[in-house]
Computed example of a mutant assay.
Amino acid sequence: MAGQSSQSIQTLLDAEKEAAKVVQQARQYRVQKLKDARTQATKEIEEYRKQKEQQFKSFEASHAGTTQSAQVAVDKETEVKRKEITAAYDKSKDKVVKKLLDRVVLVQPELHRNLKKLES
């Protein structure tokens, strides 16, 4: 009976060692799967980033012409307005200078309306 009990204990110890090996292998498998998943996720993220950058570049290229044409239109409008302002300035500058000179040169001295006359 002692031999059989010793053999049963040895069988249990062997089974326990085998179970520990299986658990260790499962842990290693899980760690490897996590590493593989991270690597795959990194690749997918990089591919997605490249795809979005490509979409953005194509969007930017397609709308760059719109921006340039808008800039040209604004430049033309600005030039037209500048010419209008210059024409108005050239037309009115002589009148304005004359009015300013008349105001400065032709002074008519008079007493202020709030000044009371002194009675003597």
Rank of each mutant, 00 (worst) to 15 (best):
M1C: 03
A2T: 10
G3P: 05
G3W: 09
Q4R: 13
S6E: 12
Q7W: 04
T11Y: 11
A15E: 13
A15R: 14
E16F: 11
E18Y: 05
A20H: 01
V22Q: 09
R27Y: 09
R27M: 14
R27W: 03
K33R: 10
D36I: 01
E44I: 10
E44F: 01
E44R: 05
R49H: 08
K50M: 09
K50R: 07
E53R: 06
Q55W: 04
Q55P: 01
F56R: 09
S58C: 02
F59W: 15
F59G: 07
A61T: 12
S62F: 05
H63A: 00
H63C: 08
T66H: 13
T66S: 11
T67W: 05
Q68W: 10
Q68R: 13
S69E: 07
A70Q: 15
A70T: 14
Q71F: 08
V72S: 06
D75E: 13
D75I: 03
K76D: 09
E77T: 09
E79F: 04
V80R: 14
K81H: 08
R82Y: 04
T86A: 15
A87S: 09
V96I: 13
K98I: 04
D102N: 10
R103F: 02
R103K: 15
V104T: 07
V107M: 01
Q108S: 02
Q108C: 00
E110Y: 05
R113Y: 01
N114Q: 04
L115Q: 03
E119R: 05
